[in-house]
């Protein structure tokens, strides 16, 4: 297998065509307990990170918003309130189990008027050019096989002046925090996965995939290479998570 045909799946090198299926298996496995595990693993801080993403999105009434890898719909639910009845929110996820959990949750909350649910691959978004005012992808980009291809696809479907927001795990700046974070990721997370979700492998993959994801400046460069302008990032919780924003010219 040549270097060109492979990609990383956690710390393993796998065939590029196989990664989507492997990631799919991970998320099929965690979908049912995704929200509970998110709250437990982050101590609820993921809600603060998502809240800041919504603030920075600048989404307002009548906007069209695409939430890629939207999972259980935390961001989509809030966007649906902000865009109002005349706006449009599309919750997209490649994984049908996650999409089903998200759809059930939002429908149970009575949110259906301005939300659509689409099973879609971030690399090949099934929407016309210049469709959305804002695109968000929260904790999903690191699972995409070809990040550059996905960024170009997002640029295509954004309207000129539209914003892309990428919320993703990143690299802590402080060495002490980095060491504590490593211990937590590789010892505590798989243990929590085993005890609560009876699935330590998926949470081992979570920790490994974070380490293989590009750091803040590399991702910033990738966004600029894809064609986004005014790119910037905000480190949160010491850089454990970073929010990148780019604008389509």
């Amino acid at each position: 297998m040549s270097e060109k045909d492979t990609t990383h799946f956690g710390y393993k090198q796998v065939d590029k065509d196989a990664k989507a299926g492997l990631v799919g298996e991970v998320f099929h496995s965690v979908a049912a307990r995704y929200d509970v595990m998110n709250d437990l693993m982050s101590g609820g801080i993921h809600r603060i990170w998502k809240r800041f993403t919504i603030e920075l999105s600048g989404v307002r009434q009548n906007n069209a918003v695409l939430d890629i890898a939207g999972g259980t719909g935390d961001l989509a639910a809030r966007f649906a309130e902000l865009v109002g009845p005349e706006g449009r929110v599309v919750l997209a996820d490649i994984n049908d189990s996650m999409l089903q959990v998200g759809r059930d949750k939002l429908l149970d909350q009575g949110r259906q008027r301005n939300i659509e649910f689409v099973q879609a691959d971030a690399q090949y978004l099934p929407f016309p050019d210049d469709s959305f005012d804002c695109i968000t992808i929260a904790f999903g980009l690191r699972n995409v096989t070809d990040i550059n291809l996905a960024l170009r696809s997002m640029l295509r479907v954004l309207k000129p002046g539209g914003r892309l927001l990428v919320l993703e795990f990143s690299k802590p700046g402080n060495p002490l925090l980095s060491r504590a974070y490593d211990t937590y990721s590789f010892r505590v997370l798989p243990l929590m996965g085993r005890l609560i979700a009876n699935d330590s492998d998926s949470y081992q993959y979570l920790a490994e995939s974070i380490r293989k994801h590009p750091d803040q400046n590399t991702l910033l460069g990738m966004m600029e290479d894809a064609g986004f302008c005014q790119c910037e990032f905000h480190n949160m919780t010491g850089g454990i998570v970073a929010l990148h924003r780019g604008i389509k010219a």
């Binding site: 801080i45 603060i48 990170w49 809240r51 990032f233 905000h234 480190n235 949160m236």
Partner: peptide, 16 residues
């Protein structure tokens, strides 16, 4: 380019 100071605490305080 990195943005301003870590917004986590400020955002958490506003949420509360």
């Amino acid at each position: 380019m990195a943005g301003a100071a870590d917004p986590t605490l400020h955002t958490a305080a506003l949420a509360a």
